[in-house]
Amino acid sequence: MTDSPGLYVYAVIPGSLPALALGTGIDDVPLKLVAAGGGPAAVVHEHRRAPYSGADDDVQRWILEHSNVVERCWEQAGTVLPMSFNVIVAPGDGMPASARLAQWLAASGPALAGRLDALRERVELRVEISLDQQLAAGDDPEVAALREEMQHRPAGVQRLLRKRLDGMERGIAERLAGRLYPQYRRRLATLSEDLAENRHAHQPPASVSVLNIALLVPRSAVTAIGGELSAIAAEEQAAQIRFLGPWPPYSFADVPELNPG
């Protein structure tokens, strides 16, 4: 990237918006809209450097600033297609970046508009259900016996037994998680329009993950999901539940028509 700037893209929004208060983006840079005709428009800033790169703390701050822009667009436009972090349109083919982006927006306009429409008034919720392995194995007679035995053993033996205990508890919690997953997924699916598993989930310590999922629901259905999760928490004492959102539909922004095959 040399003299002609690239465009860092935050999101695509419906173009037919009344004057949108765009505000600023990453590192307080001013934002602008690139549009093609009356179709969807991209929220961008002019980017003259390499893609963002740095220490984790910086990356996290940039990501938060990126997400703030997406949130703002979402609140004002009612629907948004968030871009991944660090998507930068470069100038090329003898065209400035803005022309290339506008060309892309024009070509993809109908697909983008269709997706934006489908996501209107929809929110993403994230649900993570895990089992506290100690609670999950609490009633198991073998675990109870081993715990009892440990009390009367010397410290070195205790350490070994603790390892065995941990393995037993984990095994019991794993089996329980396997039995609970189908039921929980089914209950959440009936309340959701789409579901996406999070494969990069982190794991709380001493617990076994049952399900970690993003749900696409109408805004009005958030309460129903909360009710279902409360019911799950009441039924299963070992369940630990994280419930995040409502977010812009990050996990459901993909436009399949744009990526054939």
Binding site: L81, P82, S84, F85, N86, V87, A90, Y250, A253
Partner: peptide
């Protein structure tokens, strides 16, 4: 969400993407 989800632009059409290589 922002690293793994969201829209990617079609590589051939427009874009220089540096989604992963340079992050912490």
């Amino acid at each position: 969400a922002l690293l793994n989800k969201g829209v990617y632009l079609d590589l051939d059409l427009v874009i220089t993407v540096a989604d992963i290589p340079l992050i912490g």
